[in-house]
């Protein structure tokens, strides 16, 4: 099948096709972002939000072959093994893969899914809060368990939110498969607050965001500080929050064509659009992630205020696949029960 990135518009032959794009709840690209795609191809896009990333992927696995939509956005490297096991995608080698970092595309050699963005999940802190108390912000994960930072951290739950899972994996990477349990026991004793989702953690409980919550440390994204600058009203020159670089875990997100779609050809066109420069350049300011298309320009505020760790924490995908459920059960017992 020809995979031309600029498709011939042939909407006259039949009724216009509407594709359903399944995504996690916090998928909020710019309004009208799909208009260009519709104008180009005659294909309409309908969005269906399906809970957090974990729920999205599990539900898609349960419905493999009879999907709830045509294209799915939001499998990340922590859930990738699960998605591949379930055989829920139709492979497609998107032409835009040629413009991506080979280290990222190497994660899916069979092209079952296509990389769409990368990001880092890191501890963020409220600069003013620490300054006002003449307290140095934490530098490492171990610091978070010390008495100086008691009752200061909020994290989304790894059971229900992908940044929460990424943070759990960061602690596995840092303390080892036999060491993270003791660390979380300390974190619990040190008053870590666990909430359902990232939005609640960041916008309700965190003191450095618009919600003005009570906790100055939050598990969020490496790109959250530039986002604070970009959306500040009135405008500000420097970010009110910063990232603890040694706590970052690298996330790669993927999109794929769901097996069983009646519109495989149109779905390929949508995947081409999702990896195109136009769509990729929309991502930093709306989803706070980095584009994978290397020709996509970063907004100036990103270049100025975002920090990327040189060597983010990582866990072997095969270990994640084998241990994810067991780790989550262990974590639940240690921290929630």
């Amino acid at each position: 099948m020809a995979a031309s990135p600029v498709p011939a518009a042939t909407p006259t032959s039949a009724a216009p096709v509407t594709l359903t794009l399944l995504a996690y709840d916090s998928f909020t690209p710019s309004a009208n972002i799909f208009d260009a795609f519709t104008n180009q191809t005659g294909i309409k896009v309908q969005l269906a939000l399906a809970g957090d990333a974990g729920e999205l992927v599990t539900k898609a696995a349960l419905t493999a072959g009879k999907p709830e939509g045509d294209v799915l956005w939001g499998v990340d490297n922590t859930l990738l093994s699960r998605a591949l096991q379930a055989d829920m995608f139709v492979p497609y080698a998107a032409p835009n893969l040629a413009y991506m970092d080979p280290a990222v595309t190497a994660l899916v050699p069979g092209h079952a899914v296509t990389p769409v963005d990368t990001g880092d999940v890191c501890i963020n802190y409220d600069i003013a809060w620490f300054k006002a108390r003449s307290l140095a912000p934490p530098l490492t994960l171990q610091d978070l368990a010390s008495a100086a930072y008691k009752d200061l951290l909020v994290t989304p739950s790894p059971l229900t939110a992908s940044p929460g899972l990424a943070f759990l994996l960061a602690t596995v990477a840092e303390f080892g498969e036999d060491g993270w349990q003791a660390y979380w026991t300390q974190l619990r004793a040190n008053g870590v607050l666990v909430v359902d989702g990232w939005t609640e953690a960041y916008y309700t409980e965190f003191s450095g965001s618009s919600g003005k919550g009570s906790r100055p440390l939050v598990v969020s994204y490496g790109s959250s500080p530039p986002a604070e600058v970009i959306y500040a009203d009135p405008p500000i020159a420097t970010a009110p929050t910063a990232v603890v670089l040694r706590t970052c875990f690298r996330q790669v997100e993927f999109a794929g064509i769901l097996r069983g779609t009646a519109h495989a050809r149109e779905a390929q066109l949508l995947l081409d659009y999702l990896t195109s420069v136009a769509f990729q350049e929309d991502l930093p300011l709306t989803l706070f992630v980095y584009p994978v298309h290397q020709a996509a320009a970063l907004p100036e505020a990103f270049i100025k205020h975002a920090q990327r760790p040189a060597a983010p924490l990582q866990v072997d995908p095969a270990r994640i696949a084998a241990q994810r459920s067991a780790w989550l059960d262990e974590w639940t017992t240690l921290v929630l029960r």
């Binding site: 809970g51 974990g54 729920e55 696995a61 349960l62 739950s157 059971l159 059960d329 029960r337």
Partner: peptide, 20 residues
């Protein structure tokens, strides 16, 4: 919330969110 689970909600959590 995340910390409170009865048998019923745990069935949902395991089947739909934890893939168990």
């Amino acid at each position: 919330g995340p910390a409170r689970s009865t048998i019923e909600t745990e069935i949902y959590l395991r089947a739909v969110q934890l893939d168990d």
